[in-house]
Amino acid sequence: MPWPRCSGYLNAATAPAATWPRTTDSTHGLRCAPNRLLDQPKPTQANRIWVSDITYLPLADGAWAYLYAFQDMASKQVLGWHVAATMPEELVTTALQRAFLAQPPTPELLVHSDRGGQYCGNAYRALLHRHQAVRSQSCRGDCYDNAQAESLWSRFKTEELECREGPAFADLAGAQASAATYFDYYNHQRLHSSIGYQVSYAAHQQSLQTAALNCLA
């Protein structure tokens, strides 16, 4: 069933730029990881590379909520996400913990992000290390390094936010409920042309099963 596309969402482009929240601050002075996606072919198997990003959601009282998600680069499945009223390191680590619960990572899983300070903190780095995952971050000033994660937000804002009657969510709980509904649809119903018009959950499971059979062969 296709997701309905409706009018009514006030796109961020219609608001004064000065009011937009800044989701990436690369002037934090912390040590960033190298961009390990460079010179690598796009993965054809699931659970090899995850991409991630933060976006902002408008609330009715003029405040913002912040949505963070981890997505498998090959299967397109959204594995873990979190919505909060602020965007400290905990926003990222909570989403990552949920992703690890949904999909135990393979050793040397590459987890890519932009250069925000949330991805340089001790808790985030320790969580990756504990699961034998490898941190990767975009090059400075190059938004195309994380294009797939940006594309996810474009789909979310087109297919979910534009269907709302008002320009904003009533409150944080409303934003959380909307994200839950959309990601359930995105993983289990939406067809993705880039993976042969499959749903991402099915493509993810099929890839894992194929990899397991190849290991036994």
Rank of each mutant, 00 (worst) to 15 (best):
R190V: 04
T86Y: 07
G117R: 04
S178A: 13
D184T: 13
N187S: 11
S194M: 07
A170H: 08
C6N: 08
L109N: 06
N214P: 00
G62T: 03
K76M: 14
S194L: 11
M73S: 11
R22Y: 05
M1G: 10
H129F: 07
G116E: 12
K157R: 11
N11Y: 05
A170M: 10
P43F: 08
S7F: 10
Y56G: 00
Y66I: 00
G29I: 11
A65F: 00
C215W: 02
Q206F: 03
F156S: 00
L30T: 04
L38V: 11
L191M: 09
A85L: 12
S178V: 13
V92M: 05
G196A: 09
E159L: 06
A65Q: 02
L127V: 14
A46Q: 01
Y119H: 04
P2L: 07
S26V: 15
L127E: 13
F70M: 01
P58W: 06
L37N: 13
L208A: 15
A13R: 06
V51T: 03
N47K: 00
C163Q: 00
W20I: 09
S151K: 00
R98C: 09
N11D: 10
T23K: 03
P16E: 01
S52W: 03
G116C: 10
R135F: 13
A33K: 14
S178R: 05
H192M: 10
F169E: 07
M87E: 13
L110Q: 07
W50P: 03
T158E: 01
W64Y: 10
L208T: 15
A69Y: 07
G121Y: 05
E159W: 07
L172W: 07
H28S: 08
F156G: 01
E165S: 12
G29V: 15
H131E: 09
A18M: 14
S178G: 11
P58R: 03
R140T: 15
R115P: 12
A168E: 09
G174A: 13
V51M: 02
S136A: 14
Q103A: 08
D39S: 15
L37V: 15
N187K: 10
V83R: 00
R115E: 11
E165C: 10
G196T: 12
D25T: 05
G8W: 04
W64C: 01
W153F: 15
V92I: 15
L110S: 09
P107F: 00
D61A: 02
C163N: 05
D61Q: 03
D53V: 06
P2T: 10
Q176T: 14
T23A: 04
L152C: 13
D72G: 01
A84N: 01
A212L: 14
A126D: 12
D114G: 02
T14A: 04
Q45P: 05
V199R: 01
G166Y: 05
A15N: 09
A170N: 12
C32G: 14
L128F: 14
R140K: 13
H204M: 07
P104W: 08
A177L: 04
L152D: 08
T94S: 11
W153Y: 11
Q176Y: 14
V199G: 02
L101N: 02
Y144H: 12
T158N: 09
H204Y: 15
T86I: 07
A102Q: 08
A180T: 15
K42R: 04
R36N: 03
S154M: 00
E160W: 04
